[in-house]
Every structure is written in structure tokens, then in C-alpha cells.
Design a protein around this nucleic acid. Sequence first.
DNA 1: AGTAAAAGGTTTTTT
DNA 2: ACCTTTTACT
Length: 679
Amino acid sequence: MFDALNEQQSLAVSHRGSPLLVVAGAGTGKTKTLAARVASLLDEGVDPNRVLLLTFTRRAAAEMVSRVGATSTERLATQVWGGTFHSIANRLLRNFGQAAGLSPSFTVLDSADTVDLMGLVRTEEGFGERGKRFPRKETVANIYSRMVATQAKLDDVLETDFPWCADHGDDLRVIFGAYTNQKRAHEVLDYEDLLLFWRALTTSRVGDKMRQLFDHILVDEYQDTNTVQADIIRGMCSPTTQVCAVGDDAQAIYGFRAATVDNMWNFGDHFPGATQITLEQNYRSTMPILAVANGVLAQSDVHIAKELWSSRQGGTRPVLCTHYDEGAQSTFVAESVLDARERGVDLQAQAVLFRAGHHSAGLELELTRRDIPFVKFGGLKYLESGHVKDLLALLRMLENPSDQLAWHRVLATLDGVGPATVRRVCDELGVASEDHDAVTRLVDGAGRFPTAAEAQVAELRRSMGVCLGHAGPVGASLAPAQQIDVLRGFCELVFPNRYDNAAARIADIDELAATAGSYSSRSQFLAELTLDPPGKTSDRAGPPHLDDDWLTLSTIHSAKGLEWNAVHVLHAADGNLPSDMALGDKAGMAEELRLMYVALTRAKDELTVNFPLRFHVHRHANDDRHVYAQISRFIEPVRHLFDEQAVDLDAPLEPHVDLDLVGAAVTDEVDAMLTALWD
DNA sequence: AGTAAAAGGTTTTTT
DNA sequence: ACCTTTTACT
């Protein structure tokens, strides 16, 4: 399987001894090379338990392991320590965390939990001067995580990245303090903590023990690691540890998460005596597509020199398609997707890529209308939608009756219960107490609730009681899927007040129960769910289910490392890609350019770049306010490398003004008639 | 006091 | 569409 390695790839696979940096351009067989290297280590008899493979997503780790398994025996491959920095940190901290004063049973806050906790401490601290609008809790969490990831002072972060929140510096200080107290009090770590504690442990008294665990450390997507992560790699190295980092500085797109390409540029300084190998032959795209990608990249000032080339000389030229507006773009993309399918390109082999999650909104409507199945990656997570969090909170209460976040979420869904009642009931039930019996006390009738919530509380008590397995011994209770079925009754009672599309959300709960079917323990189900969230939002009429062929919609960030035969890029307009947020920021603009580069290099055979002339001013626009856009500044200089098409450039509703006048006249007439009724 | 409903705003990307 | 603030109501 790996016999077809080219010269540079073989070098990267067989190199031993000095630290190794593999600069792997897009589509140059990076994954294959990394997998082959691991396989060759195992063939040499290296103990798989002593190989650490750090990847950017869990999906990437799983794919790598399965590729290795195809060559070496699968049993060996699955023993490799593979995963994200965060999941490996989680694993190591369970074993070594006590050296840092961590309980081995700490729990991990995912980003949604972090946001909730920020919201909670904010209301508890009670802000809100009149007239001054406080940043949303998501923003508060963003500020926090950026500050921690970059290890920068709050004031500097506010000034450079969140200038519109600069007024609230002092409030934020208080909130962050309270947030940290809460975390420590409940033995809970957020994403940043996982990395910080891991790094701290490498310099602690158990540092040597940790370093003795691994002979080989391999890091994928090295261009998207941040300073803390680079410190961790260095901290995990003993003099005999062999490091291999793979990455492409031209594809660095996580600067907003404090990733820094300096880690690649300074690899030789961090790891003295390092060897560098560059992979330049692209096996993915046709030459006409690469020409565009190279042309875009050439506009960037610095990167490690490389010029991608492909032996795939033929192929159609990329298409640059100008549309009147977003609606026309959606229609065109839907039609060309179907057209490609007619020509034999399965929907699975096609993808639509865009800068921001909401850029696909119009297209999603169009696809739904035409019954074209699709799955969307990136953007809003399934797990982050309110109703799924509601159900997970119920499970978490059962799992850990002292989980205050879960209690708050569940109790606040009851009629007539607000923050004040939640706090009072939590006190009455002793949620914060050490005995972990608060749920039992609730089921047994403790806690005073307003009469409006009577029926709901009865149902809550009943279903929680069933899930606790009061009939039998504790722990011999129902399987997770059955517990969800039981709790569904409570959701049915509570969702109609909370959400306007309650039926669809109940259906999601059923789907979650189906997912839970393969788990036998509730704690395992919850843990897997936070570490490996299903990345699709399923609440629209999208994929009926897995069996069919489906089209991929994805943010460019989520498309990293993937490839398709045919790729559509949406909204290649200044303001969208590059995002207007980055205008005026040099580093930001460079990152936007790399984002475009990543999008273009996902395509194997067919590439279409779409450019709608006008787009809405506001994100969730109800109105028709729009602006006329310029074509993306990254595409303009390489325009000549495209075949150009213009579709329906004429305004579909040219006599807009006349229609408005008629509308006004009719409205006047109706109003006059109505007024006559009471005058 | 504390909750519900109505009004008014809203900066992307994600482990 | 969702979140925060304001106001109205019990």
C-alpha cells in the first residue's frame, strides 16, 4: 500500500534520529506519509504504546490509525496513542494530574458549558448599568479563551481584538475571577486548562515520568499549534525522544485560536539539529486548478518556499461565476451540483465551501426545496442547540448530582421558575453538598416549586426516579437510550413553552436516543459526546439518513485536510472572503488569503468560484438592505486563469420602485376601509 | 420580589 | 434566529 511513495515521502518515512520537520504542501500525500512513518516504526518493532500521534481532530486520528492498521496488524495500530492535544491531555491528566492537585475524576467543560458558566456567573455578579449593553456570553467566553491562549493581558486583548468591549474591562475581571473560582470549586477543567495543566506537569516532579512514556512523537497540522502546544511538545521530549512534525505554513488558518506559524518557522531553533523535508508533488488536483491556487498563494509575502506541481496536466479550467445576488448563486450551485451528478460525479464527491456558517443559509433552503440531501459541517453544532443541551443536562444531573450547571439549566426550563427560584431550590436540595444525593432528595419530594410548575415537577421527579433505577440497586439502572426515552416525557411537557418548533426538537431527542443505543454506560456516552461531538446539524430537512448519497456543505475551516472531485466556493466577495472583520489587519488579511488557498486546493477535478454581486448587509436580514460587492481581492489577480460565466446579471425585479408604490396605494385603500369601521 | 413578555441589538472561523 | 435589556404583570 505504501510502495508508491515518492523520493521525499520515503525520506520522511525512513528518517531517524534528528528532529524532523516535513513541510507538506496541499495534496502532497501528507496523511499517507505520516501513516507510513508510523507503520514503518511498528514494523521495526517499536512498541505502539510508546508512539504519540497528535492530530488536529479526532477524525484525523481515527483515519490515521485505520490507515496504519491496513499495513501493520490492526491490533498494534490501535495501541498507538492517537488523538488531539486536548484528548491526550485529558488522558494524561487522569494519571498524572494528582501531582498538580487535580482530582482524577475531574470533568471537562466543552465550549458550550464554558459559555453557560460565563452566563451564570455574570448574572450572579449582577451587572447591567442602565443603557450600557453588556457583551453576549459567547463573546465573554471568546475574550477569555483568547486571552488565555495567547497569554496576553486582558487590556491588550480587548484593545486589539475586542475594541467594542473595552468599556467592560473591570466587569470582565470580576467575571473571570468568579468563573475560575467556580471551576476550581467543582473540579472542572475547560479546554484551555487541559493544555495549561499538561504543560505545567512537564516541568513538575512527574515530568520525567511523562517523558519516559514515549519514544516517538508525531504532530500533524503543526502550523495550527499555538505557543502552549509547542511548549508541550518540547516539554515531552527527553534527549532520546524522536520528534516529527508535519505541516504547511501556507495553510495556517487558526490564528484566531492563537495558533502561530512561528512554531514552524522556528522549528530549527526549538529543536536543534532538525532536518527539513519538503513535499511539493501534488497528487490531488489538476494543473489548471493548481495554477489558480499557486497564483493566490503568490500574493502572500512570506512562507516556506514551495511551488506545487502535478502530473495531471489536463482537465477543465476552473470556472469563475458572477451572479446577480445570493439567490441566483444558490440556484446556480444547486443546478450545477445536479448537473455534475448527471455526468457521474456522486454527491459524495462534491462539496460546497464557504467562509462563515451562515453563508450557506440560502443554499440550504434551495437544496431542501429540491430534495437534494446534504450534510453541513461547521457552523452551529448539533450539541450546542438548546434542546439537546436540555436533555444532556438531565443526564448529567443523574451522572453527577452536584453538577450545578446542569441543575440550573433543567430547573430554569420550568414554568414560573427564574434565577431566584433556581438558587433557592438548589440550596434546599443541597446540590453543592458533598453527598451527591440531591437528585434522590428531589425524587423523594424535596424542594418547593411554584404552582405553575406542579405538573412539570411531578414528571421530572417521576422520570428521574425511573432513571435512578429505584427498583433495583444503584448502577443496575436502565441503558442510556432507555433513559433518554424516559426523559423524553419531560421534554414534551417543557419544550412547547420554550421553543416554537417543539415537534422537530423532540424528533432530535429521538435521534439522540438512537445514537445512545450503542452505549451501555451513561458516563461513557456523555464523555464520548463531549470529546467527539457529531458535527452535523440535523434539524433541517437535510439528510433523511445515512443510506443515501449526500452533498457536503462545510466551512473552509472544517474542510481542512479533505478533498472532493468537484468543489464550489461561495461568496468570493470582498467582505465575505476576505471577511470584513479582517480588513485593515495585516496578519488577519494574510490568514484570509490562506483560507482562500485552502478552499481552492480541496478540489481534484472541478472547481467553481462563485461571486454574487450583492449581498445583505445584516447577517440575519429580514429586510432587503444590501450592498454591491467587489470580487474578492485574492481572485481578481488570477482572473485570467478562470473561464468566466455570468448568470442572470439583470435584476429579476427591476421595477422595484413601482411595486412599492402600488403596495403603498393598496395598503392605503385597505386601511381607509378599516378605519371607516370605527370612525 | 421575581417572572414573563415585548422591545431592541447583533462582529467569523473551533479543539 | 438568539441574546440582552426593559417593561409590565403577578
